[in-house]
């Protein structure tokens, strides 16, 4: 018996569905410490791998290069440079943004890694790779222990 194929789009009837998946994301040892310092003291913290002489931001308890356990914490200056950036014109739903957002990877002096965040108080056409920027935090009462406790990075 041959397979009869559908020849009319009107005869195709997709069933719509969704997956309600909810989860908690634990910060872990390194994340707890990083966000507690950010929230309570407005400080950026990193972790050093003495083997590789690398400082990790975001911090972690292991080195991705040599697999050492990392325990040496240190404060990171809140000024860095734009390693790369984009001007995003599209939101998560695929619609064009009225106000494009400038997203950047900010690297800190001597640090392996950095932070992905938005740039503020600057026009898109004034941003360049290598531009010095500094962290702007939300006021202490508004900080909850989240990457959004950082409001944005602004040009120095």
């Amino acid at each position: 018996m041959p397979v009869d194929k559908v020849t009319q789009v009107a005869q195709t009837k997709p069933l719509h569905g969704e997956i309600p998946v909810y989860a908690q994301y634990t910060f872990g040892i390194a994340g707890e410490k990083f966000f507690r310092e950010l929230k309570d003291n407005g400080r950026l913290m990193g972790v050093k791998c003495p083997e590789c002489n690398l400082i990790y931001v975001p911090p972690r308890i292991y080195c991705e290069r040599c697999f050492s356990e990392l325990t040496e914490w240190l404060e990171i200056p809140n000024r860095g440079v734009v390693h790369t950036f984009t001007v995003s014109h599209i939101d998560l739903d695929g619609n064009r943004l009225k106000e494009p957002v400038i997203v950047a990877l900010v690297k800190f002096d001597g640090v392996y890694g950095g932070l992905v965040h938005r740039l503020g108080r600057v026009e898109a056409d004034k941003v360049s790779i290598g531009m010095p920027v500094e962290m702007v935090l939300k006021s202490k009462t508004k900080r909850v222990g989240s990457i959004l406790d950082i409001d944005y990075f602004k040009p120095v």
């Binding site: 790369t84 984009t86 995003s88 939101d91 997203v103 992905v116 990457i147």
Partner: peptide
């Protein structure tokens, strides 16, 4: 990353824009 990146809630293709920019540079 659900802790460091996802809460920013940007369209994730920003990664491609950033990578292209660095590649050009």
């Amino acid at each position: 990353d659900p802790v460091y990146n996802k809460p920013l809630a940007y369209n994730p293709y920003f990664i491609a824009g950033m990578e292209m920019n660095r590649f050009l540079c």
